[in-house]
Simulated assay, not measured.
Amino acid sequence: MSTTPLADLSAAGVSVWLDDLSRQRIMSGNLAELIEQKHVVGVTSNPSIFQAALADADHYAEQLDDLARRGASVEDAVREITTDDVRHACDIFRNVYTETAGKDGRVSLEVDPRSAHDTEKTVAEAVDLWKTVDRPNLMIKIPATPEGLPAITRVLAEGISVNVTLIFSVDRHRAVMDAFLAGMEQARSNGHDLSVMGSVASFFVSRVDSEVDKRLEAIGTDAALALRGTAAVANARLAYQAYLDTFSTERWATLKGAGATVQRPLWASTGVKNKAYPDTLYVTELVAPDTVNTMPEATLDAFADHGELHGDAVSGTADAAGEVFAALSDVGIDVDDVYQVLEDEGVDKFEKAWTELLETISEQLTRRSPEQS
């Protein structure tokens, strides 16, 4: 019998992950409560999330004092603080990881966004973060930029689990899945146990509607305005079909036989930005087996309160989704330009958040340094 909307969502094959992490959540027991009470089975972080968490330094005061006494650099301080948070979160999710045989219970930590266009730096940092956190349920987040694609393959080849982020187009999603397959093939050749490795492909949702709707409103015709709020869900549904196609090949069957598990689609950026749309839109309309939905807490709470499920909302919808994009093209939307703008903005946003995080920590270290006392 159904218990809650989130229980129903989990039963439908959607893993509920929280898109937020902070020292306060960890130390207060909130993260553990979300596992027990709201079916949360994973957590994601990014530079913006850490910047917001560190803006309130009270929960980090003791560690900041210690870092200042040791004369730690700003870069080292940020690395120590963020990896500590992620390591503690990994420990909180360890039972989930064990109970799901590694499918869930994962915690994601992103490489420095300033390396998004540098393959070598991305690989080096991913390996360093993996060793520093030293937890089997960690996932290293790598942006799906052109330079990130070979990094994905090389990091997986080292036996490291990867969350690929900032995916906006179906074509890039296909390239990400190909990079995943190549990485797993190399990992097998390198002697790694594929059964303990995990990967998700984080396909961004709400930002697509925000950008496309803005362009539709600029066009302003009745035909254009009628298409508002249709692009993001259609885009994700096409991505899911690409996932089904990729993981029904002989190439995948060989890896599966060697113990590998699929790279699941993860619906990211699922907080609804347009208040004219239902606040659970990007959950209800993207229910499908073997997917992850990583939600900001407001979306999680909204779905727990009044979320509705209507079964699998994605399988078999590719043709209809394709018609949406044909209609968008007909009214003058350049979807390739939309994707490029969103990728550039995504990298820029995370770089800005990282810079602000460094500035915040620098100020805190200066204030706490022995010279100031």
Rank of each mutant, 00 (worst) to 15 (best):
L266V: 11
W267C: 01
A268P: 00
G271L: 06
G271N: 10
V272S: 01
N274L: 10
N274K: 13
N274Q: 11
A276S: 14
P278E: 10
D279T: 12
D279V: 10
T280R: 03
T280V: 15
T280Y: 03
L281D: 00
L281C: 07
L281R: 05
T284S: 13
T284K: 02
T284D: 06
T284W: 02
L286K: 03
A288H: 00
P289F: 13
P289E: 06
D290Q: 15
T291C: 08
T291G: 02
T291M: 04
V292M: 03
V292C: 05
E297Q: 15
E297H: 12
A298Q: 08
T299W: 02
A302P: 06
F303H: 03
A304T: 03
D305T: 15
D305F: 13
G307Y: 03
E308M: 15
H310W: 02
A313M: 14
A313P: 01
S315E: 06
G316W: 05
G316H: 11
G316C: 08
T317F: 05
A318Y: 10
D319L: 14
D319Q: 13
A320R: 10
A320K: 06
G322E: 03
E323K: 14
E323G: 06
F325Q: 06
F325E: 01
F325D: 01
F325K: 01
A326F: 14
